[in-house]
Amino acid sequence: MKQIISALPIVFLFLAMLFSPKAVFEGAESGLLLWFQIVFPTLFPFMLISGLMHAGGGINIIARLFGRMFSVLFATSKNGAFAVITGFLCGYPMGAKVSADLVRAGRITQNEGAYLLSFCNNTSPVFIMNFIVWKTLGREDLMIPTLLILVGVPVFLSLLFRRFYLKGEKHFPDVDQKDTNIRKTVDFTMLDACLTDSFESIVNVGLYIIFFSILISLPGNITADNKILAVILPTLEMTNGILMVNRLLADLSVSYPLILGLTSFGGFCAAAQTQCMIKDTGLPFLPYIIQKLTAAAAASLAGALYMRMF
């Protein structure tokens, strides 16, 4: 009986796709174009360079330059500073990938990896400025408050989340590595390994985007009257969801907080990408979802307060 119940959604999805081939094609096409035109050229170079820095010892330089400062600000170890930088600057799911890579390599503890995952896997500032503020909202006056809210909320929440992971310590310890002082030469063999790993990761991201884009396209065009679909569908994939919220809700005082909340959460597509990146690391996934939902609620509240006050 349990197997039948768990298989019902898959059977229903199969039938829906079978009887809606046009919607499936359009969803797959839009997801593929989104990945190929925006996500791939934006994310793949950062995946590659982060892999090269990890393999070639560049993380040690970042740790020396920013380790002490980030230890004071975020209570991270020196190596953990690299995950914070990439997570805030490069966008989903780079924060999760770098945190997972550091855990796998033994550069940070698993406990610190879970803490980093709680707040540094975020939307990139470039996406916020270009797609949300300029393309979707068309309001340059919202640039500063949008950036402040979407960057400031996870920074503030890190003050709360760290209490669950530090266990009375002031900051996470630096992990001793025997090979830290060994010079690693960047050669074509290393480049080939990093290219393969980065390509595999970016393809997985693309497949998730295509799948969730198909799910969004299956119900067809919806209106604000379809309250259940209007609430569920935008949460599946962030980019399409933001456009959907902006289209369905003309009142900016309502749509703006919802867009901030969705962006802070990242959508279930970004959550699936994150789970893919942290597999085989032991990093907990359910606490991550709870923490992202907390951040989404805080960002929405901050957006609603801003619209009411200004």
Rank of each mutant, 00 (worst) to 15 (best):
Phe127Leu: 08
Thr76Gln: 07
Pro173Tyr: 12
Leu117Cys: 09
Pro173Ile: 11
Leu236Thr: 01
Asp176Ser: 11
Ile222Trp: 02
Gly241Ala: 08
Ser30Lys: 14
Glu26Cys: 02
Leu33Met: 08
Asp192Ile: 02
Thr189Glu: 09
Thr235Ala: 12
Phe40Ala: 09
Met1Cys: 06
Met143Tyr: 13
Tyr256Arg: 07
Val98Ile: 15
Phe310His: 14
Leu249Asp: 00
Ala302Gln: 03
Lys22Trp: 10
Phe88Val: 08
Gly106Pro: 04
Tyr115Thr: 05
Ala295Pro: 00
Leu18Trp: 15
Asn79Tyr: 13
Ser30Asn: 12
Asn130Gln: 10
Ser253Glu: 13
Val151Lys: 05
Asn60Gln: 10
Leu286Ile: 14
Thr180Ser: 14
Gly206Trp: 09
Lys279Phe: 01
Gln273Lys: 07
Met94Leu: 15
Gly266Glu: 11
Val151Gln: 09
Ala96Ile: 05
Phe188Gln: 05
Tyr92Thr: 05
Leu218Phe: 05
Thr196Phe: 07
Pro41Thr: 11
Ile216His: 00
Ile209Phe: 07
Ile228Tyr: 13
Ala100Pro: 00
Pro9Trp: 14
Gln275Glu: 11
Gly168Cys: 05
Thr239Asp: 04
Ala299Val: 09
Gly266Cys: 11
Ile59Met: 07
Gln3Tyr: 12
Ser77Trp: 09
Thr123Ala: 15
Thr189Trp: 02
Leu252Ser: 12
Phe212Gly: 01
Met238Leu: 15
Ile132Lys: 00
Lys78Gln: 08
Asp141Trp: 11
Leu65Gly: 03
Thr281Leu: 09
Ser300Pro: 01
Ile5Thr: 13
Tyr256His: 13
Asn240Gln: 15
Pro93His: 08
Gly152Ser: 08
Leu148Phe: 14
Val153Asp: 01
Phe285His: 12
Ile222Tyr: 03
Val24Pro: 00
Leu236Lys: 02
Val175Pro: 01
Arg107Asp: 06
Cys90Pro: 00
Val205Ala: 10
Asp174His: 06
Pro93Arg: 10
Gln37His: 07
Tyr208Gly: 05
Leu159Asp: 01
Gly261Trp: 04
Leu262Tyr: 06
Ile62His: 04
Leu166Lys: 04
Phe265Leu: 10
Lys167Thr: 02
Ala250Asn: 08
Asp141Val: 12
Met47His: 02
Pro257Asp: 14
Ile144Tyr: 09
Cys194Glu: 14
Phe46Asn: 08
Cys194Trp: 05
Pro93Ser: 15
Ser213Asn: 02
Leu33Val: 09
Leu73Glu: 02
Met53Arg: 02
Phe131Gln: 06
Phe40Met: 11
Ile216Phe: 04
Leu117Asn: 05
Leu117Tyr: 10
Gly220Cys: 03
Lys78Ala: 14
Leu229Arg: 02
Ile38Gly: 00
Ala7Gly: 06
Gly57Arg: 04
